[in-house]
Design a binder for these strands. Structure first.
Lengths: 222, 222
DNA sequence: CACCGAAGCTAACTATTATGAGTTAGTATC
DNA sequence: GATACTAACTCATAATAGTTAGCTTCGGTG
């Protein structure tokens, strides 16, 4: 429950999302470099992360981009599609991160260290995306929600099986792998709530620290 | 990022909130035992926890109580007041928990163990309340938001100072008390996402397990 | 130079929201 | 037994949401 203290002031990061020169709209409605769908997703992402999906209106998104709400529809299909794109591509990245991280080792300690490092790093480098995945996925339309749910379950199972395997080999010692897995993953998730790119810690620092904390957690003395 | 897998189906717990005999409305609109403000807060709580503040309409709340939306206003001032009541009273309880927990000891290890146990237990016994505090506080009106922010900051500082003190006396060994504090508190917060009253673990089990995990975390080997 | 598509705009539509006003039906009290 | 109270109701309103339609204007291309 650190959301209140760790979050910056409530309207932080809610500004313009246009790169330099972008916001010079000519009388006819043209701008220097064209607005892309990616720009809109990015603006929506910032708002969704800060105010939630239902707390964000397309007016808000359009305002950030210096256009009117209807103009958004030249680039997107719907508000829901913005959320879907954000959540599903982020979950893809998380899955890729995991595969890449654990590919080169069989040792449970190494595996968990790398998996945690990758997961922690993802949350440090992409706090907006991960916050939206964690808090707004429930507002996806049923089909997309089901896909997201499966992706998440898959990650959870792969993660937990490393722990279970480590317990079997004696590398770890925990009462309940499921719980330990939850605790570790949620620790990583929380990074997205406090991490600041301009802070004293780099994403690598955080990844390193959290992977060590995770290993410590998996050898809880009784 | 376990919200997707750990949460039950999206509309769980969204049913009637009336106790037995409550839902027998007489032709004139009367019911067996009178509907109270607390009943409404409770129904709103369930919805806010499940669908978010902006994802919940007063129609939803009224529906759970078998009344029409305008009738709610005989008991409440506004939708915002429901959120404020939920968040602020929960934060009060968290503060009380903490004070009571750490009152009888000076040992940092004991203190952190008890503080974590109390915090963990609160999240296990009141998952709806704590989820709302963590995810919906940002939607409070400015005045209430400021109060909530202060309450949260206070808890964070008290928590962290136990750790810092423990590091000073040599009881703990962590690189960064602030980070360790975040990690531990967020671990507890996550309990609200997976804990089920009918599961195999009791709140006491969880409190015990998490306080041991916390102590383990504060002695990370380098 | 004529034209075409991209991308802006305004106006408008529909649905839903929170909330207000006024009404009615039981229940308790004098 | 009249009255006042409570707590529901229906009906109404103003604001806002997401979205669609149609118009305009520009830069690029034949």
């Amino acid at each position: 429950m650190t959301a209140l203290t760790s979050s910056p002031s409530r309207s932080d990061l809610l500004g313009d999302h246009l790169r330099d020169g972008r916001d010079e709209v000519t009388p006819g409605g043209r701008r220097a470099s064209p607005l892309t769908r990616a720009d809109i997703v990015d603006a929506a992402l910032t708002h969704f992360a800060d105010r939630g999906f239902h707390g964000t209106s397309l007016k808000d998104v359009a305002h950030s981009l210096h256009i009117r709400p209807p103009s958004l529809y030249h680039h997107i299909e719907s508000k829901a599609s913005l959320l879907a794109e954000i959540v599903l591509t982020t979950l893809d990245h998380v899955a890729d991160d995991f595969e890449t991280a654990v590919a080169d080792t069989e040792d449970p300690i190494d595996k968990i260290r790398r998996a945690v490092a990758a997961y922690a790093r993802r949350h440090a480098t992409h706090p907006r995306e991960t916050r939206v995945v964690n808090q707004e996925s429930r507002h996806l339309e049923p089909g997309d929600y089901a896909v997201a749910r499966l992706a998440r379950q898959d990650h959870e199972h792969r993660f937990r099986s490393i722990i279970s395997h480590g317990v079997a080999t004696g590398a770890f010692d925990v009462d309940c792998p499921r719980l330990a897995s939850f605790a570790i993953r949620e620790m990583c998730v929380s990074i997205a709530r406090w991490f600041r790119p301009d802070g004293e810690l780099t994403p690598s620092d955080v990844a390193d620290l959290y992977s060590r904390q995770a290993v410590a957690l998996l050898r809880v003395p009784r």
